[in-house]
């Protein structure tokens, strides 16, 4: 039986999301200190297993584990025995034999973290698999909105538009799911060719290809990365046309409400989905997303490895409770 894992946002549910976001507040406080480190996960080992390139997610997880005093190992597929033909399963079992408490997995194939979770006793955290899911991105997005708008109680009534290549985006899948679980109303804005087949009620609350119609009325404008490789698949006529219809241009930036948050999961294609300098947008929280990613990943690691099970509601005089049972 495997330990608790975080493969999709479904593993948490709305109460689990709130639990992680509450924990992230504690971790953010740690990160604000001159010495941002706590002994919470001393003796635990976290292994980053990245079969796909990543800068921010890998560094973010590594930093998160270190700030909790866990030991970290990093496995980069490009420098490994994968090149000698070792299978994914053998690779994971080999690393697991060295004593690992959690695997942080990025893989180009949807479902790979799920498979890995079936092969190991360790916790598995999905750090992005194919087009499928990227739950920690969704959590850091939710945390960023929660802190920026002081929405600690949830997202009831929050209006969000998520713009771009929804079809190929694991970020869109997880983030839309998390925001809707917290009560937000999410509209997907994309050309028909970049919509997933299951778009509709199940995926989002509304779908449109007319960004101008709603841009002035949203609380959160979430821009997705336009993946250049989609050009070759002829899913959009040209990058210039994409920018004209779906990019955040200076004209559209002027239509944003004064409080509207502008978000992007990175890396940004400047001049494509975002054709203004985000530093000049008062509502841009793209850097905060990166900063918050560390606190949120600390919260996820602590929730899986340190909490000893689901968190119980606080009882009176919980102080100094020992593991002994009542003796009466």
């Amino acid at each position: 039986m495997s330990a608790r894992s975080l493969l999709t946002i479904d593993d948490l549910g709305s109460s689990g999301i709130m639990r992680v976001l509450d924990l992230a507040d504690h971790m953010a406080e740690v990160n604000r200190r001159p010495n941002p480190k706590v002994p919470a996960l001393r003796g635990k080992t976290v292994c980053n297993v990245f079969f796909e390139d990543s800068t921010r997610t890998r560094l973010s997880f590594e930093t998160a584990a270190k700030r909790l005093s866990a030991d970290t190992m990093t496995f980069a597929a490009s420098q490994s025995s994968i090149n000698k033909g070792e299978s994914l399963r053998d690779t994971i079992e080999t690393i697991a034999a060295m004593g690992v408490d959690a695997f942080v997995v990025r893989h180009k194939s949807s479902g790979a973290p799920q498979l890995i979770a079936g092969w190991t006793q360790a916790s598995v955290i999905n750090a992005g698999d194919g087009w499928h899911a990227h739950p920690t991105q969704a959590l850091l997005d939710a945390y960023t909105v929660r802190t920026a708008l002081s929405r600690t109680g949830g997202f009831d009534g929050l209006r969000m538009a998520i713009v771009g290549d929804v079809k190929h985006s694991r970020v869109a899948r997880s983030t839309v799911q998390a925001f809707r679980m917290l009560g937000a109303h999410v509209t997907v804005v994309a050309p028909r060719t970049l919509l997933p087949p299951d778009v509709g009620d199940r995926f989002a609350d509304a779908v449109t290809d007319r960004l101008d119609d709603l841009i002035g009325d949203v609380d959160v404008l979430y821009l997705l990365r336009m993946q250049h490789e989609r050009m070759h698949e002829a899913l959009v006529p040209s990058l210039r046309e994409y920018t004209t219809r779906f990019g955040l241009t200076p004209r559209r930036a002027a239509m944003l409400g004064p409080q509207t948050l502008v978000m992007h999961p990175g890396p940004m294609n400047r001049g494509v989905e975002i054709a203004v300098d985000p530093a000049e947008l008062p509502g841009a929280v793209i850097t905060q997303q990166v900063t918050n990613g560390i606190a949120v990943r600390m919260a996820v690691l602590f929730d899986l490895l340190g909490s000893g099970g689901p968190i119980a509601p606080t009882t009176d005089a919980a102080t100094d409770v020992t593991t002994e049972g009542p003796t009466e």
Binding site: V38, G306, S307, G309, T314, A318, T323
Partner: peptide, 21 residues
């Protein structure tokens, strides 16, 4: 001060942090 991240029984029982330090 919330000391939950410094406890010696982390992983042995559920942790319920209080308000942020």
């Amino acid at each position: 001060l919330d000391a939950s991240l410094y406890r010696d029984d982390i992983g042995l029982r559920p942790v319920a942090p209080g308000a942020v330090s």
